[in-house]
Design a protein around this nucleic acid. Structure first.
Length: 505
RNA sequence: GACCCCGUCGUCUAGCCCGGCCUAGGACACCGCCCUUUCACGGCGGUAACGCGGGUUCAAAUCCCGCCGGGGUCGCCA
């Protein structure tokens, strides 16, 4: 068996679309599962539309997703290679110069459409004599090179995802361009040359390439090259079932990264978009798993098979992504989570963590928190059940680290409607003030019990006033954990702040 | 319009190739209950789908035909 070699071949035109990311992921998983190579090839032949920022974004994104590649190529550096193969086709009479202008072609297309015919190049320039070419050149025309497409030939392949596919060569648009008038070859040509030269065994790409495949197969045949296996992945749809695009909301990996999704979450989610593990293989893993649809990258590599890719397109609905992200955030060990956090703040202008010998200076929007690393970790431990994204770490920090806070509408209403609230709070304040031990969960519970007995108040009427006094809100963490975290001094400080506020009101 | 692809709960899907084990399974979301001083977490349970119509067959989500619906592609973009 030949060594499996696959490639991810993005064109650098902007941020990486989640659909592209999924294509990259499936290529990656297939390569690693089969102990093969995963190659990155930047398809930048269209010089006008490409920019280096987009190239950087590709590396950045793959890196962030931890999809490591074995080789990198850039097509813009391979033009001399392609020229050889163009010349070969020209010499063999399998390709020819075409001097039609864009305007002429446009006109031709419109007329064909008007007559209800599919638009195709008619082969007008197939048999130009050297004299005619000379004349056209003198007019200042620069030719493109077209590949001769045979009439009425069945081009078929067994797609690893879609099954048997076939086209009639007469239906693929006529002789197609392989070299532009500026001398630069186009996608359908270079992709074949490169895939051959790079020994690609499996071409795994989006289904929008299905109609390119017959053209490419024709080229393989013209060169007498072995045709790789093709696997066309279904496209990803938006909520309205049309191709996922910017108007559907967040569609680039970059955006999800900025929102605070973990790379492992995105990988897990994207893998499940159009793929599901084979039952038999899965069973072996099942007993070890805490959750049936949470997969690490290693598990995905072990389980991945193109046979299990669903040929139907999938709607991109991030509800499950939220669940997966919440799950990973809850389960990751704190050090790993902290590493992710440091990576995360790098892509956020409004969030920053500065570390200076165990002191942390944390900036979140307009708030600044100063604390030590241990306290920060404790705060995360206490609140991580509430997070959906990494940003939430900072959202929930406020309750734990800021002793100044507003009192919610609802909370005020509760206080008004429950007159014994202030008595409870005052009693609690006195007890804390006179406390000699370190404030712990147990002590807190003991104190509250005492208040319950003394004031004959219990349940919500007992706990809610304390919660409001300590946080200004009607919901939040477990009070005993919060109180223990704050410690005696800060609890007193909060209570004093609160009581002052109430007096003024 | 032409060519091509696709159609199972709201969403992601298992089952389809090789008809019966499907009273259609799982996950997320949603709802309810339990846990609990609140909100979450966690545990338990529930609602919810084979696009439609014909065949074939003792038996069809599964095979065949037609229809309908959705999508993709028709560039000197990739």
């Amino acid at each position: 068996m030949k060594k499996v070699r696959v490639r991810f071949a993005p064109s650098p035109t902007g941020f990486m679309h989640v659909g592209n990311a999924r294509t990259a992921l499936f290529n990656y998983l297939f390569a690693r599962h089969n102990k093969g190579d995963f190659i990155l090839r930047i398809e930048d032949t269209d010089l006008e539309r490409h920019n280096e920022d987009a190239v950087k974004a590709i590396f950045e994104t793959l890196n962030w997703l931890t999809l490591d590649y074995d080789e990198v190529y850039r097509q813009s550096k391979r033009f001399d290679i392609y020229k050889k193969y163009v010349d070969y086709l020209l010499e063999k009479g399998l390709a020819y110069e075409c001097y039609c202008t864009k305007e002429e072609l446009e006109k031709m297309r419109e007329e064909q459409l008007k007559r209800g015919e599919p638009p195709r190049y008619t082969g007008k320039c197939r048999n130009l004599t050297p004299e005619e070419k000379e004349r056209l050149r003198k007019e200042g025309r620069k030719p493109v090179i077209r590949f001769k497409v045979p009439e009425n030939e069945i081009i078929a392949w067994d797609d690893l995802v879609k099954g048997h596919l076939e086209f009639n060569s007469s239906n693929i648009g006529g002789d197609f361009v392989i070299v532009r008038s500026n001398g630069i070859p186009v996608y359908n040509f270079v992709v074949v040359v490169d895939d051959h030269l790079m020994n690609i065994t499996h071409v795994i790409r989006g289904e929008d390439h299905i109609s390119n495949t017959p053209k490419q197969i024709l080229l393989y045949k013209a060169f007498g090259w072995e045709i790789p296996k093709f696997a066309h992945l279904p496209i990803i749809l938006g909520k309205d079932r049309s191709k996922l695009s910017k108007r559907h909301g967040s569609t680039s990996v970059e955006e999800f990264r900025k929102k605070g999704y973990l790379p492992e979450s995105l990988i897990n989610f994207l893998a499940l978009l159009g793929w599901y593990p084979n039952e038999e293989l899965y069973k072996k893993l099942a007993s070890k798993k805490e959750h049936v649809e949470i997969f690490t990258k290693e598990e995905l590599i072990e389980l991945f098979d193109l046979k299990d890719v669903n040929p139907a397109p999938a709607v991109f609905d991030t509800t499950k992504l939220d669940f997966i992200n919440e799950y990973f955030i809850r389960k990751l060990d704190l050090d790993t989570l902290y590493k992710h956090l440091l990576e995360f703040v790098k892509v956020r202008k409004d969030i920053d963590i500065k570390e200076e010998n165990n002191r942390l200076l944390i900036k979140y929007k307009n708030e600044i928190y100063e604390t030590d690393k241990d306290t920060f970790f404790k705060a995360i431990e206490l609140t991580r059940n509430y997070y959906t994204t990494l940003e939430d770490v900072f959202v929930y920090l406020k309750e734990l680290l800021k002793d100044e806070y507003e009192i919610d509408e609802n909370a005020l209403k509760f206080l008004r409607e429950n007159e014994d609230s202030l008595k409870v709070i005052n009693a609690f304040y006195e007890k804390i003030k006179n406390l000699e031990e370190v404030l712990s969960k147990e002590i807190f519970k003991k104190l509250v019990k005492e208040i319950q007995k003394e004031l004959k108040v219990k349940g919500k009427r007992l706990y809610m006033p304390l919660r409001i006094a300590l946080t200004g809100k009607m919901q939040g963490l477990e009070l005993d954990a919060l109180v223990e975290f704050l410690g005696k001094d800060r609890v007193l400080k909060r209570l004093e702040n609160f009581l002052r506020k109430v007096e003024n009101a």
